[in-house]
């Protein structure tokens, strides 16, 4: 092999990582960064909706303050719903993933995992609409809850905040279960046994060995649930009432009903900023190591 051939080959090898990154990077640039730029530009335009003049760029920062004005309760509500759905999903998902990964006979794992993702075979919208029937005022579930005095006699489930949170939890549950399952499944059970050999109780072994080893899965699951849940508007639209709307509903109607593109863009940006801040704080608190997993855990 000549010197030249060798150097071309070395160059080629150095380029491989970039080649592998390229499809994703191009995708992100074309479908995320460029639209993001135009959305930012749109959010600083001014004008009257539905006029021939349209919107012109004018550094209209007041779009941001206007978009926020009076929006406080709805923003709080949005993160309350998303936060509650995330916590409930975590409480359901961890024991379930634990049982599938470590407790049941291995031959049951595949059917159980299939059951977890089975709802995905139906579209998101249809599943949510189906919940309207399940939670309807005259449905058996509501009658049972009424006879148990869990909800008052003149109460209801549909068109309440509870219904929105339940819908969010249900729709995003698989995103919580799968990462937790993946990290539980990788846990080396001999480490747990070693803990027990060192006189750890089952509880201690879980808290000191299993849980820390599966933190990357928990954190990934929380992010995969919380982020889409806080931007969701389908659940609030179908399962919520007139007083249960989320920011997503507002963005949707500002854009598509009011044709007020600058304000819709400003509100989307603000929403993105808030979610990014929350995620950033969360990752800092949890530690990046827990997020990406350390060398040790990866093995």
């Amino acid at each position: 092999m000549s010197e030249k051939q060798r150097s071309t080959k070395a160059l080629g090898r150095r380029l491989i990582p970039y080649g592998l990154l390229a499809p994703g990077a191009i995708w992100l640039i074309v479908f995320f960064l460029i639209p993001l730029y135009f959305m930012g530009e749109m959010s600083l335009r001014s004008g009257i909706p539905n006029t021939p003049q349209g919107f012109t760029f004018s550094w209209e920062f007041s779009n941001y303050t206007d978009a926020l004005a009076g929006r406080g309760p709805q923003i709080v509500r949005t993160f309350e719903y998303a936060g509650a759905a995330t916590i409930i999903a975590l409480l359901i998902a961890y024991p379930l993933a634990y049982a599938i990964a470590l407790k049941v006979h291995p031959r049951w794992r595949l059917p159980l995992l299939f059951a977890v993702i089975a709802p995905f075979f139906t579209t998101y919208l249809i599943r949510t609409v189906a919940w309207e029937t399940i939670l309807a005022d005259d449905s058996p579930i509501v009658s049972i809850l009424k006879s148990l005095q869990i909800i008052p006699n003149d109460g209801r489930l549909l068109a309440t905040s509870g219904a929105v949170i339940a819908g969010l939890t249900y729709n995003f549950l698989p995103f919580m279960i799968l990462p937790i399952y993946a990290s539980l499944e990788r846990v080396d059970t001999s480490l747990i046994e070693a803990g027990k050999d060192l006189y750890a109780s089952a509880r201690q072994a879980f808290l000191k060995v299993t849980l820390p080893l599966t933190m990357p899965g928990v954190i990934a699951g929380v992010l995969l649930t919380f982020i889409p849940a806080s931007g969701d508007y389908i659940n609030a639209e179908f399962l919520g009432g007139a007083n249960n709307t989320m920011i997503g509903n507002k963005i949707q109607s500002t854009y598509l009903e009011q044709s007020d593109y600058p304000k819709a863009a400003a509100l989307s940006f603000l929403m993105m900023a808030v979610v990014l801040t929350i995620v950033f704080i969360y990752i800092r608190a949890a530690g990046t190591e827990a997020f990406v997993g350390s060398e040790e855990e990866a093995r």
Partner: peptide, 28 residues
């Protein structure tokens, strides 16, 4: 709602393609 989702997703891309000029309407 389905259309809304699609339109929202498309909106930003559309802004990238056609909205750069600053004029939002046609001439009557």
């Amino acid at each position: 709602l389905v259309a809304a989702g699609a339109a929202l997703a498309a909106a930003t891309v559309v802004a990238a393609c056609g909205g750069g000029g600053g004029v939002g309407g046609a001439d009557t």
